[in-house]
Amino acid sequence: MTSTSRGKGPLYRLYISRLRRQLTPQSVPHHVAMMIDGNRRWAKQLGFDSAAHGHRAGAAKMREFLEWCDDLGVKVVSLYLLSTDNVRKRDSAELSDLIEIIADLADELSRVRDWRIQHVGRADLLPPELVAVLEAAEHRTAGNRGLHVNLAVGYGGRSEIVDAVRSIIAAHDRDGGSIQELAASLTPEQIGEHLYTGGQPDPDLVIRTSGEQRLSDFLLWQSAHSEFYFVESLGPDLREVDFLRALRDYGRRDRRYGS
């Protein structure tokens, strides 16, 4: 059964309404991070000859997912679309397809509602054509005040932390400070300000599809106190009911920062 044929009946819609009523504004996370996973397996299970079919279906699901978030009052969503490991290790044909799909998605999202698009990741690892699309999406939506959408493309959490520290060192050096002064004054807050997501709240909830339970180098610093929710559905098969269950579960948790 595909994602397009699931969850259309009256009982499903009734259950969706029930789940929505169980949510309160206080229980909805401010920032949701999504790790869309399982696109390749989805395509293989359905007999497609190319993983691109799965990646396209996953991209379409992400547009839908963002609408769910926006409708419920989530303010920031971070989507993990292409890691630095993907860039270096994926088959060249699959990577080429994936880059084209991401470019199409970024352009599409920059024309939806009042969303603001931001690229988080290493532009120097990406093809110039994709960088141009991501920059155009950012520019087109710079004045928007709706849902803030981070597109993690060419992204790696460890690399992000390294880049943040390098930025801090460079700024300190320009100001004429010594390495000893920097070592004595460096704080977690200072590193946070120099991350790709600097100035944004950390994710309250991190969701991953396909049943995998690992971070895969996504928002390592920012997710130190995040809640995690793992969905068995492959990326393209993610349903609104899965998302609402994640929010319901999140709202029931007692968040203990640091304990």
Rank of each mutant, 00 (worst) to 15 (best):
L14M: 03
Y15S: 15
L19D: 11
L23I: 07
V28T: 14
H31P: 08
A33Y: 02
F48H: 15
A51W: 14
A52V: 12
A52S: 15
A52N: 02
H55W: 07
R56W: 03
A60P: 04
A60W: 08
E64A: 11
F65A: 12
E67Y: 14
W68E: 05
C69M: 02
D71I: 07
L72K: 06
K75A: 15
V76G: 03
L79N: 06
L79H: 05
T84K: 08
A93S: 08
S96F: 04
I102A: 05
S110M: 01
S110C: 07
V112G: 00
R113S: 00
D114R: 13
D114P: 01
D114C: 00
R116G: 07
V120W: 01
V120F: 05
A123P: 08
L130M: 12
L130G: 07
V131G: 14
A132E: 00
T141N: 04
R158P: 03
E160D: 11
A164S: 09
S178V: 11
I179Q: 15
A184L: 02
E189R: 15
G199N: 03
Q213F: 13
S216I: 12
L219E: 10
Q222R: 13
E227R: 07
E227I: 09
Y229N: 10
E232K: 13
L234P: 12
P236R: 08
D237Y: 06
R252E: 08
R255H: 05
